[in-house]
Nucleic acid binder design. Structure first.
Length: 557
DNA sequence: CTGCCCACTACACACTTGGA
DNA sequence: TCCAAGTGTGTAGTGGGCAG
């Protein structure tokens, strides 16, 4: 066996797996780093390209093969190859021949990641050059050469299917750099997508001829394409996991439940899982719906992994507070749209506890207002008996309000209000006093009355303010507000519903009753109210005005 | 009116799942 | 392998609907 033959693996038919170990010893790592291996891929391609430009060649001749440098071998893969010598390895097998830089096969993942620019690879450039030359030939000449190639295949015991199968199989490509080069050229070529497309649906070149379309490869290719799509979409679903996973520490907070939109989710899903989203979007024949796409993917994700439940938790809370029955939840849970019913029950309790904790913290920082009123609940009995009669039960419901940006009331506010009220009871307001107060108020409001009249005139369509010469004059501007209310995010007030108590608020005719109601509310929300006790607001809660208007002021002072 | 069946709710507990 | 989160199932209590 000559060295060249050994390098190219040409020696004999038995020189397949069984000779691997010989090659390993014949071409150690040092040989791979020899001068022969230092030939650059660019040099090789330019050589081929220049040759093809002179005389187009459809197949590499023997000289070409001899000129081809080989890939380097990998020690780890060598061992693996030795150990599995009877089966074709799916991973890179050792090359029995030396290699050159840039002759490595392109891994699909590398191609996807863009680490290798296949479009500009030497193999692609070579194929393009060949194509350019071929396109200058007549159809007859191309046909003649194709027949010559098929004849060459036939003479060597191949046909096109076998040739491609052996080429793509990997067994021989890992052994020989020439075959590997050819495979890379095929895999990275611009022509491959079109080859695949034509296999699925062979084109009709003569539309007028009513001949039957050539038999395509759809039957064999379709299952492969389906498998490939499934593999891609499974990977994308794995990548989608973090997007739909929720944290139980924050999952029932408002910002978590409402902090996304379907359009936003759809856009983010499109980035992480483009194939899956495109697949879902393109299924409806009429028009796609991001909502349905996101919901369907969420259902599948939830089925795959319970922790991917962002949409399910939001839907669960929504349907719960819309009064969906337990049976309804069971159905929707089976459809993968909501969480289980037991989760919902626990989530409601967690929400209540979290809200109360938040309120407990806030009342120590900001002034707060407590309102309460009676609530009447009918316990309806459709089949009444003596021991089981319909009842109309009264209770008290309370709500706490906080406004973080508000100026705290002075500590004497409650006392001042009580004294003012007591004083007014002894000296009711007179008509003259009412008129005096109105006169003072009217003086302040006069510019606003004038502005109302002026605005009606200058904003009428006929006046056309935009064309008026003095439209920017100060007299035509709206006067600044007297006491503008704060607006914006910081000015938003917060509302907390407290637990209702079975103490009729109608018993408020006495101050003692008010205290009883408040005590009952306190008992129901002990953790919150114990904090209020610490804030020494008990005297405020005991305020007499509470039983009149159901309003209690609180302050951390 | 009674008895039976069913629905709903709350709860406990064993089990499953997935991540660390 | 452990642990947290979530699921599934069984049980008890309550009450509505319906037939007899």
């Amino acid at each position: 066996m000559s060295n060249v033959d050994a390098v190219l693996g040409h020696s004999s038919s038995s020189n397949t797996q069984s000779t691997s170990s010989e090659h390993i010893e014949s071409f150690p790592r040092a040989a791979a780093e020899s001068d022969l291996l230092s030939i650059g891929r660019d040099e090789r391609v330019s050589e081929v390209s220049s040759k093809s430009s002179i005389e187009p060649s459809l197949a590499l001749d023997d000289d070409d093969e001899h000129d081809l440098p080989e890939l380097d071998s990998d020690d780890d893969n060598l061992e693996e190859d030795i150990n599995t010598d009877s089966e074709p390895s799916q991973s890179r097998c050792p090359s029995p021949t030396p290699s050159i830089d840039g002759d490595e096969e392109l891994d699909p993942d590398e191609l996807k990641a863009g680490t290798t620019d296949s479009a500009e690879s030497p193999q692609v450039l070579r194929t393009r050059a060949l194509r350019q030359t071929l396109e200058q030939l007549s159809e007859d000449e191309i046909e003649r050469r194709m027949l010559a190639n098929l004849e060459a295949l036939k003479n060597t015991g191949f046909d096109l299917a076998l040739m491609l199968d052996f080429l793509c199989d990997g067994k021989y490509t890992t052994r020989n750099a020439t075959i590997r080069y050819a495979r890379t050229a095929l895999m990275c070529s611009d022509e491959l997508p079109n080859i695949f497309r034509c296999c699925l649906k062979p084109p009709r070149w003569s539309a007028s001829a009513k001949k039957k379309r050539a038999t395509g490869g759809r039957k064999g290719l379709a299952p492969v394409a389906v498998d490939w799509c499934l593999e891609v979409m499974h990977k994308e679903m794995d990548a989608l996991g973090p997007l739909l996973t929720t944290d139980t520490a924050t999952d029932v907070r408002a910002e978590s439940l409402t902090g996304f939109t379907f359009l936003e989710l759809h856009a983010r899903m499109s980035v992480v899982a483009p194939t899956l989203v495109q697949f879902m979007d393109s299924l409806p024949r009429r028009r796609s719906s991001p909502v349905i796409t996101v919901t369907t993917i969420s259902q599948l994700m939830y089925q795959n992994n319970w922790s991917n439940n962002r949409l399910q938790k939001t839907f669960s809370i929504y349907f719960k507070f819309k009064g969906l029955t337990a049976k309804g939840f069971d159905v929707l849970h089976a459809l993968g749209l909501v969480m289980s019913h037991s989760w919902i029950s626990k989530a409601i309790r967690r929400m209540s506890r979290m809200t109360l904790d938040e309120l407990r913290e806030l009342v120590q920082k900001y002034p707060w207002v407590l309102t309460y009123d009676n609530v009447v609940i009918l316990f309806k009995i459709f089949s009444q008996r003596l021991e089981n009669l319909q009842k109309l039960t009264s209770g008290t419901a309370a709500t706490a309000y906080l406004k973080p940006g508000a100026t705290p009331l002075p500590a004497s506010a409650t006392q001042d209000l009580k004294e003012q009220r007591a004083a007014n009871l002894d000296s009711p307001i007179t008509i003259r006093r009412v008129l005096d107060l109105a006169a003072v108020g009217n003086k302040k409001l006069r510019p606003y009355y004038a502005w109302l009249l002026l605005a009606a005139l200058i904003h009428s369509p006929d006046f056309d303010l935009s064309t008026y010469k003095f439209k920017d004059h100060t007299l035509l501007q709206k006067p600044p507000p007297l006491n503008p209310l704060p607006i914006g995010k910081d000015a938003k007030s917060m509302q907390f519903l407290l637990s209702s108590v079975n103490q009729p608020e109608a018993s408020r005719v006495k101050i003692d009753a008010t205290c009883t109601i408040t005590s009952a509310i306190i008992t129901c929300a002990s953790s919150f109210w114990s904090t209020l006790f610490k804030c020494k607001i008990w005297s405020v809660v005991d305020w007499a005005g509470a039983w009149v208007c159901g309003l209690t002021f609180g302050s951390h002072d």
